[in-house]
Structures are given as C-alpha cells and as structure tokens.
Design a protein around this nucleic acid. Structure first.
Length: 554
RNA sequence: GCGCCCAUGGCUCAGCUGGAUAGAGCGUCAGACUACGAAUCUGAAUGUCGGAGGUUCGAAUCCUCCUGGGCGCGCCA
C-alpha cells in the first residue's frame, strides 16, 4: 500500500515538473509513512515540504499542485487532505484493505520476505568466544542478535553465511593448557601456585579429572613446555564441543567454525603482510612491524609483528577478514561486545587498505547483560569461577523466553535480564503475550472446526464484511510486516521485530475481546476466520525469524 | 588527558535516520469471564525528552558547549 501511494505521488511530481510548476533536475527524495494518528489519514507524505525549498514555493501551494495531479485510477483513495505546515494525508477507501490479505494466503510462510538483497552474499560472524571456558550470558545475547540478524537478512533475499571465529592460539589458550595441567597435578597431590591469568572455574577441574582417567599420569613428570600445548589442544577441543552443543540447544547453528590455526597453516598472516607491504602500509620501527592505519582515520598506527617476531591478534584478524572477502562475500558483518568498540577504526582501516569499500564491513555492537534474580544482581565473576553459563540460563528459563528477552532492547543499550521475570508466566513477560495470541488463534480455529466451520480460502471469504475499525487496524498491522522486516534488515536492528510482534498481538487481543470470531452468521464467521488465520501466519513467520517456537496450546 | 556510546513518566525502554498533540510495558488506581483460552481486555493518572545555545517551515532526533553515567585508549585477546 505504501508503495502504491508513493507511486501515485511520484507520478504527480513528474507531471508537475513537466508542466513547469516544479523545477527539473534532482529533487530531494520524498517520504510516505503510515501515520500515528487516525485523524491524519492512513498514510502521510512530507513531499510538499521538502520540495518547498528547491521550488521556492509555499509548501501548502505545492501540496495543492500535487493533489490536483494525483491520478487515482485504481480508486483506492477516499480523500487526500492538506494539513498543518503542508502534510498530505492520504485516506484509503475502506474496501481497499482486505484485498491485501490475498498476499498473506498466497505467500504463506514466505509472507514478509522479499528479494531486496538480490542474492548478494553476506557473512555474519558472531559469538567467536575463545574456547577457554563455557559461554556465559553475555555471549548469549550476541548469539541471538547474530542469529536473528542472519535470519532477517536471509528473509530479504541475501545469501547468508554464519560463521564463528575460533581464536584458538595465543596466550589465553596457553593459560588454559597451563590451568588444566595445574589442576591435574593437584589431583595427583602436587600443590602449586595459580599464576595470574589462569582459569579457576570448576570446569577446569573436570577436564583435568577426565584427562587423568583417560590417559593416566603420563603428564605429571613431562616437561611442562611440552605438556602444555598438548593439554591446550585437548582442553580447547573439549570446551569447543561444549560450546557447540550449548549453541545448538539455544537454536544457534553455524555454517562454519573457522579456526585461527587454519590461518597460520596456510600462512595467511604472512601473505597478508606482504600484500599490505606492497601497498606501502607497513613500516619498521625498532624491532616491530607497524601498519599505517592512520592513513584511514585511526588515531594511531598499530603493531602487526611484535619485537619478539610474533604476529599480534590484530594481524591475524586482518588476515581472517581478508580471507572472508576472498571467499566472495560482498558484505561482512561482525558482532562484537560493546567493550571492543575502540577496535572498529583499525579494522575498518584494514579493510580499506586491502582495497575494499568501507561499507563492506559492518559492525554491530552488543552491550553487556546484567543478570538479575528478583531484581538483585547475580555475581558473574570468571575469576572465582562463579558465573551463570548460557546452558544454565537456557535450562532455567527456556530457549524461547531467553531469546525473546535478548531482543527486547536495541543491541547497543544495556539489558537487564531477570531470571525470575523471564520464567514468570504473566503479563510481565512479553514472550507469552505473543505466543498466547498465536495459541489463542489455533484454539479458535480448532473450535470452529468442531462447529463445522473451516477457514475459507481468499476467493471464498466475504472479506468485504471486515470493516470495523478494529478489523481495519488488524489488516493494516498485517500489511506493515514486510516493511518492518525491510527496516530491520536495512538498519540491522532485530529488536524492531519484537516491538512489532507486541503490537500485532495487542491489536489482535483487543479485537478478540470485543468481537466473536465464531457466530451464527456463516459469512461473517468465514471472513473473521480468514483474518485470524492471516494474523496467525504473520505471528508464525515473525516468531520463526526470532527463533522462538509457536505453541498451538499453552 | 583523548576518543566512542548513552541520558525520554515512579521503573524498564520505543520513537520508523528531521515531521503534526513524544508512545508502549511494568508498577499504581478503577472496572470486565453463565460468551471462541482472564498468560486476555477496558479506562484513569504521570513528562521543562539531562542543561544552554544554534541550524529551519519543523528538533527527542543534526551542530557546539556544559553536567552526569558507561566503555575504550597494550608489541593483551
């Protein structure tokens, strides 16, 4: 509908330009949006106001010119009003809404999707936590945001690839191996000091005990320098398997887990550095190699090879991003914890230095999560080993409530996650509000079937009977769905879907409380069943995008 | 010290990249089940959009400064 209005308006503008009433050449883009206030019609446009400056005319005069030139041959407009400083308010004829429901039936599970992405290849990299310990609640939010952004992009026609970067080399991994060794020795009666940086979680003890059971005491008297790499590989592998399993149970599945070790095996870092050097972005200062990121707006240059000859994490990460683009992705999206925001300029510089557009890399920052229980903070100290893991949270509150709660805020705003609230089956918990609407519709359709009514197909339903204000509102909400998905895709803001869902469910619940779907009037019942079924389709499609289940009973 | 993000009813947050009288939920108060599911609905109250300037037809939104919070500023990852 929005597109129809936009087309009418653009034709009117062309006509006015042709008649010399508006200047030719590039005009500012006009907007058509749905209104917040029914008194302003169904859609409103700011066209006259944005054209006022280039045309050097009064906005209300321009609105009048455009109004005369709107060719409503399809007879969809009840009226168009000029209001306020120069808004054009479009009132849609009552009977023009229900035909829009045909699309819902025709497209079914695909309703809301589009081909905006035109099959362009896009990669979403998310979670990417070091396999040094189980995922915690903070990773969970990033996991859901990444997963749902990927779903949304796929829905608008991108060819989406989900990837997890396993940062499985470096000091942190070394510390993991050392930690396991220390616990292992402890189990065999060798007390030892725990140096700074070592992991003290209970899971380390479990890994050590498992190792002892499987391989005996062979590491006890081995040279630690020889033993640690072996234990690192063992522990990292075991932890990664646990991470994969936790994510799977959370509904998050990756196309690829990409190992940093892989990069080094293929000399990815070496090749990268030579490539950058050829372009003149590498210089030596002291014993270290530096990358001139300031050439692209970073505040200082960055080291890529340290004095001791080891590449930095940054060097490997650039090589990884180069690898992504070489694999043919047009756009690469990284999802990071907000504490990494300072890293954006240098990564952006790296991408540009490699010859890719600045826009080819997009970073979504995800703020931290405050885990609460009944309003009181839950301690999450990694050092003491006391923290709520993703697994524990999902076991306690369930996948649906956890996922939905993570999407109720913009990604870059702090989120309080209250375990007791997430479990509560009440109006305080929006997941159930939406799922309840879905279950309720299923129940109505079951009840209708018992009484001998089947929901009709589009051609059979007397949709002209749907003309109450609530019914029109419901249809409008349904037709907004594709626009909401598009907006979420364009801005990479998955929370728009949860807000939309709450809205749609509210309109339906309100309608339900005022009107009986099933009555003695067969035609009216049929029309309302069709409407209810359309709502259900949208709820199902939207919840599926969020990775939240659609129970037909609750 | 420099940089980035945030500041919106009592609380938690939206606000569609500049639009009309700033919206939801929770909480509070008052109501609705002999009717398709009350995990629902209806109604009421609550705001100098942190402050001060500026940009223009028009600002919660953009610019500058100030106040107050979060984060970052390694040859760590």
């Amino acid at each position: 509908m929005k597109q129809v209005i936009t087309a009418l308006l653009e034709n009117a503008i062309r006509s006015a330009v042709a008649d010399g009433l508006l200047p030719a050449g590039a005009l500012p883009p006009v907007e058509v949006d749905w209104t917040k206030d029914a008194g302003h019609g169904d859609y409103a446009s700011n066209a006259a106001m944005v054209l006022a400056r280039p045309a050097r005319k009064n906005p209300r005069d321009i609105a009048g010119i455009l109004l005369e030139r709107i060719d409503d041959s399809g007879r969809i407009l009840e009226k168009v009003e000029i209001a306020g400083p120069g808004f054009m308010n479009f009132f849609i004829r009552e009977g023009c809404w229900s035909p829009l429901l045909k699309k819902v039936e025709d497209e079914g599970g695909r309703y809301g999707s589009s081909d905006l992405g035109k099959g362009r290849r896009i990669q979403v990299e998310f979670v990417s936590a070091n396999p040094t310990g189980p995922l915690h609640i903070g990773h969970a939010r990033g996991a859901v945001v990444g997963d749902v952004v990927a779903n949304i992009l796929a829905a608008v026609g991108y060819d989406v690839f989900r990837e997890y970067y396993i940062n499985d080399t470096g000091n942190q991994m070394n510390n993991l191996g050392r930690s396991v060794l220390l616990r292992y020795r402890e189990l065999l009666g060798r007390e030892s000091e725990f140096p700074e940086g070592c992991y003290k979680g209970e899971y380390i003890r479990d890994l050590a005990a498992e190792l002892l059971k499987r391989e005996g005491e062979r590491y006890l008297d081995m040279d630690p320098e020889a033993a640690i790499p072996l234990l690192t590989t063992y522990a990292g592998g075991a932890i990664l398997e646990g991470i994969k399993e936790d994510l799977r149970r959370f509904g998050v599945v990756f196309d690829l887990y990409f190992s940093e070790r892989e990069l080094y095996r293929e000399d990815g870092v070496g090749i990268l550095l030579r490539a950058l050097e050829e372009k003149g972005f590498i210089y030596r200062e002291g014993e270290a190699l530096w990358f001139r990121t300031t050439a692209f707006g970073d505040e200082k240059d960055r080291v890529v090879i340290r004095q001791n000859g080891d590449p930095t994490y940054f060097a490997a990460d650039i090589a990884y991003h180069r690898n992504k683009f070489l694999r043919g992705f047009d756009t690469v999206i990284d999802i990071w914890g907000a504490d990494h925001h300072g890293y954006i300029p240098r990564m952006s510089a790296a991408v540009q230095a490699l010859g890719y557009a600045k826009e080819a890399l997009k970073v979504i920052l995800v703020q931290l999560v405050n885990l609460l229980r009944d309003g009181k903070p839950v301690a999450m100290s990694t050092r003491s080993g006391e923290f709520d893991t993703l697994r524990e949270v999902v076991d306690e509150v369930g996948k649906d409530a956890a996922r939905y709660n993570f999407l109720m805020r913009r990604s870059d705003s702090h989120l309080d996650f209250d375990l007791e609230l997430a479990k509560r089956q009440s109006s305080e918990n929006p997941v159930y509000y939406v799922q309840y609407a879905y279950a309720r519709i299923c129940s109505i359709l079951r009840m209708a079937a018992e009484r001998g009514y089947a929901a009709p197909h589009y051609g059979e339903a007397r949709l002209d009977l749907l003309k109450s204000a609530e019914e029109i509102d419901l249809i409008k909400a349904i037709t907004r769905f594709p626009e909401v998905i598009e907006g979420a895709a364009r801005t990479l803001e998955p929370h728009r879907l949860t807000f939309y869902l709450n809205d749609l469910a509210a309109v339906f619940h309100s309608y339900y409380n005022k009107n009986k779907v099933i009555s003695d009037d067969g035609d009216l019942t049929g029309a309302r069943l069709f409407l209810a079924k359309s709502v259900r389709t949208v709820l199902e499609n939207a919840l599926t995008l969020l990775g939240v289940s659609t129970p037909d009973k609750m």
